[in-house]
Structures are given as C-alpha cells and as structure tokens.
Design a protein around this nucleic acid. Structure first.
Length: 316
DNA sequence: AACTGTTTCAACCGCGTATTC
DNA sequence: AGAATACGCGGTTGAAACAGT
C-alpha cells in the first residue's frame, strides 16, 4: 500500500501549460499569494492541475525575475564549486544564483556543464567550435605550415583531444590557446579559474585533515602504500589564484582525489563509476560549510557562501 | 525532403522531511 | 506520541527542437 496520491490524477490535467493556465496562475498568485496551500490553489483558481504542478510552474517559470539559459562563466564557477562541495543539492546551489531555479541548474549541469568540464562535448558546442576554428583558420589565411602537421582533420576537429584531468596528468602545462580538451578549447568555454580550482581540489586539499568520514575507501584496508597521496599526506595548500600547487602534486593525485573523495564529489561518480551515498545529513555537511574548508576558500568568491549560516543557504 | 540521432528542458514522480492536529 | 497532510527536493522522463545524413 503506497502513499495516497496528492490529487485525483484522473481529473487533473498533465503536460505542458497553456498560456491561459499560466495567466490564471500568475495573476492569482500576484494578487493573492499562494495562501500557503498549494493543494487548494488550483481549485480556487479553477485550474485542473495538481497543486504540486502549480507550485513547480510558478517556481520554475512564472515567478518574477527568472532567468533562463545563458549561464555566465561566473555562474558556472559557482555551480561547480558548490557541486563539488555539497553535491547535487540543487536548491541550495540555486539559492546562491539569483534568478536561477534548481530545475534549471540541474538541467544545465546534466546536459551542458558536466560535459563541458569533463570532456564530452555537445554537438552544439562542437559546431560552434568548428565554426570558430574555421573562422580562425580563414583569418589566419592558413599560412602557418604547422597546419599541415597539426592533426586537424578535414572537419576541422583535431584528432588529438584531452580532457581536463588528462591535462592535469601531464603536469601544470599552461593552456595553449586553441588547445583542445576532448574537443574543447581551453580558454574558451572552460575558464582558467575553473581549471585552477580543479587542480587545487585534486592536489592541494589536505583531505586527511578534513573532518569528512570515509575519506579512505575500505578497499585500501589500511595499507598506506595503496592510498592516494591526497589521503595520506597533509600537502601544503597552494597559493591562492595560482596553479603552482599543481606542480607539487603528482598528476595521479588529482585523478585519485576525484575517485576517493566521495563526500566532496558526491554525484561525480558518473565519471568514475563509483557508488554514491545519498544519506548525508546536515550534521555531516556542516564541516564542509566551515570557512576554513579549503574547497570553499580555494574558489574565488566562494567564501561568502560558506561564511553564511546554513539557514542563509536555504537550510531548514 | 525525409529520416534518424542527439540535445534540451519542462514537467512528472516518488520519497524524505516538516507541520499540523 | 503518532498519524495525516503538505511541502520541497532530486531523479527521471518524454516531447519538441535541432542538426546531420
């Protein structure tokens, strides 16, 4: 026996909202507010919709000052930083981005940002990039002889690709304009500071000092030799705004930090095939919210978010 | 032009938590 | 204290739009 449905599904309309429904809902809420009861709201307005559906429509679409699409690099940074720190708590992340909804951010992360940061590239981005490449090549007049040696195929897409952690594996090589990260232009969509942040997260965060449980997965069985360096050694935090720290971090360390830092990277298992523990509670999160948290402080502008009390982050 | 595959995003679903009685 | 109800969240789905062939 399951939970009783929140509404009579047979008499409730589903699917996309019509402009008329939108207008009804919007004008009513603007005049009267929600009345603190979403379930009763559709009946008051005369909408054949579920209360939850009304709430969702209002919050994600009709609410004033909603922004759609066109995420800035700064927003990318914030989303990434928060995602790495707290995982897929979209509502909390959305609370830090005025005008953005949790649904919007969730969609953006799942469809765009994840691919953008971790290698896979959408065809749309590929096209934009190819266009850019062609234009650049045309502007250049194809005068450089390297062009013949450069493994760029007839499509304009280089045969050699990287993703950011491959990049990290190769050491702190400064990004070369036009260099690709698995089909991506370093310095184009993927902004330098994000990569710095990723470097730091992988290499300089003294995981062993963080009050985070289960840093070391059971497969290590306590054998220090098998632990990733980031779990064993209290590495020195690298200088703010610098990738110098990455020069002291073994390339492998970055990759392994992503593999084994399950709490910070909750949700990134999709990249590494890890399982996830969705049972984190605020009591466990609170150490991450600590302003001394290297993760938070390593991200430009992130300190303000973590200096806030949890309540200010939309916590209950 | 028609078909196919991919991407995007609005909306739904079910669960956990909070609140009310 | 505990049951009932409502809210809010995150995961998932499916249709529309788009691009390539």
């Amino acid at each position: 026996m399951g939970r009783a449905p929140c509404c009579d599904k047979a008499s409730v309309k589903k699917g996309p909202w019509s402009p008329e429904e939108d207008a009804k809902l919007k004008s009513y809420i603007e005049q009267n507010g929600t009345g603190g009861n979403w379930i009763a709201l559709p009946q008051k307005i005369g909408l054949k919709r579920c209360g939850k559906s009304c709430r969702l429509r209002w919050l994600n679409y009709l609410r004033p000052n909603i922004k759609h699409g066109g995420f800035s690099e700064e927003e990318d940074r914030i989303i990434l930083s928060l995602y790495i720190s707290i995982g897929s708590r979209w509502s909390i992340i959305a609370a830090q981005l005025p005008g953005r909804t949790d649904n919007d951010i969730k969609n953006y992360w799942n469809t765009r940002l994840k691919k953008k940061l971790f290698g896979k590239q959408s065809r749309k981005d590929q096209r934009q990039q190819q266009q850019f490449m062609r234009q650049a090549a045309a502007n250049d007049g194809m005068k450089q002889e390297e062009a013949t040696q450069d493994p760029i195929g007839s499509s304009g897409v280089p045969a050699v690709t990287y993703n950011w952690h491959h990049q990290a594996m190769a050491g702190p090589v400064p990004p070369v304009p036009g260099m690709m990260m698995e089909g991506h232009h370093i310095g184009d969509e993927v902004d330098e500071s994000i990569r710095k942040l990723l470097y730091k997260l992988g290499g300089a965060v003294p995981l062993a000092t963080l009050p985070v449980p289960h840093c070391v997965p059971p497969t290590y069985e306590g054998s220090p030799s098998l632990m990733p360096p980031s779990c064993m050694v209290e590495t020195t935090s690298c200088n703010e705004g610098s990738v110098q720290g990455s020069s002291t971090l073994p390339a492998l360390e970055l990759d392994q930090s992503f593999r084994f830092n399950q709490v910070k990277l909750d949700g990134l298992d999709c990249f590494f095939g890890m399982g996830t523990d969705r049972s984190m509670r605020w009591g466990e999160v609170s150490p991450l919210v600590c302003p001394n948290n290297t993760v938070a402080s390593s991200s430009q502008g992130m300190q303000q978010y973590f200096l806030d009390e949890p309540a200010n982050l939309g916590m209950k």
